[in-house]
């Protein structure tokens, strides 16, 4: 980190924070603090929705995913545009018609107070934990590669977000997200063109795609019906659809973005914008990762990209074994380079026979390299089982710190921290709103003025910000907390989505049947996870379908029996 990098990083982040505070001061009604005065245009809604979903991990992990496994991950997003259409056509008209401030308020109008309170509490548990992880995930990676103190970094990210989110509410979140998205896109474009410029002069963009394809990094689409492949076209349009529907349709951190739209149409167009741009954006981030792969075909790469992992093994009794693997790695890189030069020469001469032979040589070298890296990972694990051996989160940041010129390093760090802040801001904003409106205001006796509720919402937003910082600071004490958050998401999401679908599509089902079905489903989903009946990735669909079937069964039974069993 040069001084110029510090200046670029510091000035970018501080400008966004203080511009957000200055631009949105003086919210004195719940309407302006929670819905941003319902004045957002469609592009603000769209950018806000995209910035909320794109966290630091999107920019750290996705390029590394492409580096190791190619671009198949883009298929995970194929269900998202379909979910956007369903939300625009079904969810938004009802949210707007009932003029709700929170997603769960709708459930009271449709069912009853206990269903609203249950879903609000499920949201707070899940999103409260996730907000801590949104800060922790980039903090642990940046602290490992830059030597910064993990807790200090977590506290700084948290405080920067708290400053503008508490002060300006939803308006401040959307004002800053527009600037954060601008920084993110500019930074990623600079990185992309820098990589292209760093390749040998005779390697064009077209050639680099050919090289990536020859190394099996451009297998974008997979139409296999095998459920063991995590990312296929089919898993994308089914599992990805369910997940996107639950996340964008029922998670307040997203719902609050589009409820701030000036009209129903502006909200809908905002989500259409997201449905049109999300897949190209993810494709571009993955393409940056593939270009990093091509770059490392011409430049030396480490055996493992996580410096903490390398340090752990080199300071252990396995150092000698690791050195042998590293020598093998250098030899393989030399072999790959020979095969690569054969391939690019054959490409220029359009000698397809020689191209096929070179491709075979590259495939063999890649296979050996894969098993060599695998052996290195298991050696690191033996040396220290607490260190992260899967280095996909470290590939892009390693490339940034070791290859980008002065100034651009600071800009790319601003990209990563902006992404962390934009997601955290939406989460804290939603957590504060739900606590203040669904729990405090709904159950509070007496009449208070708007100013009181704005102050209360600010207070709860601040408290959730502090909780998120505390979670980020203690997260390293727990094993694999990041996966735990994903699992908790899967445990609750399906159930909540099912409740909303019941509200929209099954008008005859009433509150008691839904509430009992929801509690039963939640217990069964937790049981099926603890008994390992299915992978946690399927819990979403399981919970959603189960709660709908149970509620339909209970309501029908209730009507046939003439009602006594479920009256409370």
């Amino acid at each position: 980190m040069a001084i110029l990098d510090w200046i670029v990083l510091g000035s970018t982040l501080l400008f966004i924070v203080f511009y957000g505070v200055w631009k949105t001061k003086g919210s004195n009604s719940i309407e302006s603090y929670v819905k941003g005065g319902s004045s957002a245009k469609w592009w603000t809604v769209g950018l806000s929705v995209m910035a909320t979903q794109a966290s630091a991990i999107t920019f750290l992990s996705t390029p590394g995913q492409a580096y190791h496994d190619g671009m198949g991950f883009v298929q995970f997003y194929f269900g998202l545009p379909l979910a956007m259409i369903v939300i625009c056509a079904v969810f938004i008209p009802i949210y707007h018609k009932l003029k709700v401030y929170t997603a769960y308020e709708l459930l009271e109008q449709r069912f009853d107070l206990k269903t609203r309170t249950l879903t609000a509490l499920l949201f707070l548990v899940q999103r409260g934990l996730a907000a801590g992880i949104t800060i922790y995930a980039p903090a642990i990676i940046l602290s490992a590669v830059l030597g910064w103190d993990l807790k200090t970094l977590s506290i700084i990210i948290g405080i920067l977000v708290i400053i503008y989110t508490v002060s300006g509410g939803t308006s401040a979140v959307s004002v800053t997200q527009k600037q954060q998205m601008f920084v993110i896109m500019v930074g990623m474009f600079f990185a992309f063109f820098f990589i292209l410029g760093s390749l040998p002069s005779d390697i064009s963009f077209g050639n680099s795609l050919k090289i990536a394809g020859a190394n099996e990094k451009l297998n974008i689409l997979n139409f296999d019906f095998n459920t063991k492949n995590r990312y296929t076209f089919w898993s994308g349009i089914t599992g990805g659809f369910f997940l996107a529907l639950a996340y964008f349709g029922t998670d307040q951190s997203q719902v609050q973005r589009y409820l701030s739209g000036k009209s129903m149409r502006e909200s809908q167009l905002g989500l259409v914008f997201n449905g049109l741009l999300k897949i190209p954006m993810q494709f571009f981030i993955l393409l940056v990762g593939v270009m990093v792969f091509v770059f490392y075909q011409y430049n030396a790469s480490p055996l493992n990209f996580n410096p903490a992992a390398t340090e752990a093994v080199l300071n252990s009794s396995y150092a000698e074994d690791y050195q042998i693997l590293n020598d093998g790695h250098l030899e393989l890189e030399a072999q790959k380079k020979v095969a690569l030069n054969e391939y690019t020469s054959a490409l220029k001469l359009e000698d397809y026979g020689a191209m096929q032979r070179a491709k075979m040589n590259m495939a063999n070298a890649n296979l050996k390299e894969r098993s060599n890296r695998e052996a290195a990972r298991s050696l690191i694990n033996q040396a220290n089982e607490n260190v992260e051996t899967n280095d996909k989160d470290y590939v892009f940041i390693h490339f940034i710190l070791n290859n980008l010129p002065m100034g651009l390093v600071g800009l790319l760090l601003a990209v990563i921290l902006s992404a962390a802040m934009s997601s955290t801001a939406s989460e804290l904003n939603a957590l504060g709103t739900i606590t203040a409106l669904d729990l405090y205001k709904r159950n509070r006796k007496g009449d208070f003025n708007q100013k009181h509720y704005v102050m209360v919402t600010k207070g709860f937003t601040l408290i959730w910000g502090i909780i998120a910082i505390v979670i980020a600071c203690v997260a390293s004490l727990f094993d694999n907390l990041i996966q735990l958050v994903n699992i908790i998401g899967s445990i609750f999401y399906g159930n909540v989505l099912g409740i909303f679908l019941l509200a929209f599509f099954f008008k005859f089902v009433k509150g008691n049947a839904v509430f009992i079905a929801a509690l039963t489903t939640q217990a069964l989903v937790i049981l099926s996870y603890s008994q390992d009946w299915m992978s946690y990735l399927w819990l979403n669909a399981f919970g959603c379908i189960l709660v709908i079937l149970l509620a339909l069964f209970l309501e029908s039974l209730d009507r046939i029996m003439g009602s006594p069993p479920f009256k409370t």
Binding site: P93, A212, G213, A214, L218, L221, V272, I279
Partner: peptide, 30 residues
Amino acid sequence: NYVWKKEYTLVLLLNALYIILFYVIMILNN
């Protein structure tokens, strides 16, 4: 409620186009 709008058709068509484009990129570079 539940009105189909031309923007939704645009979302479907453009995303179908992206997938076709991905397929072409995949075929041309393999």
